[in-house]
Amino acid sequence: MIFLDFFFAFLIGGIICVIGQLLMDVGKFTPGHTLSILVVSGSIISGLGWYQPLIDLAGAGATIPITSFGNALTQGAIAEAEKHGWVGVLTGMFEVTSSGISAAIVFGFLAALIFKPKGKAN
């Protein structure tokens, strides 16, 4: 059963990446455009209430792809809106957090302290 759990993480995570690859290859979008599209999609799916079931099914398969960033922000904003109404939509923006961003900032800073870019092909 635990194997199936991992299988769904692999399957859903893989499928989201395939959508990204198709956007880049077939849609000719730049990586920046592709990721932006995925984040907005994650946000919309979250608004429809379908993202949480996806996380329940696939675990990290749904939380690791960048779409979950849109979900996290949207869930935060919706939760605030539910509590505080119109004001909540605005304050929700300050409440929402994403560990991915803070972690990337911190590690990015640390990496800049340590590393130097090296242009080697292989």
Partner: peptide, 26 residues
Amino acid sequence: TGNAIFIEDQLLVAVQAKPWLDYKKR
């Protein structure tokens, strides 16, 4: 699968849904 713990006036039931039905576990 599931576990149930009775202790004093508490009952804790922890279950695991079949993985392919996990999407509706809530």
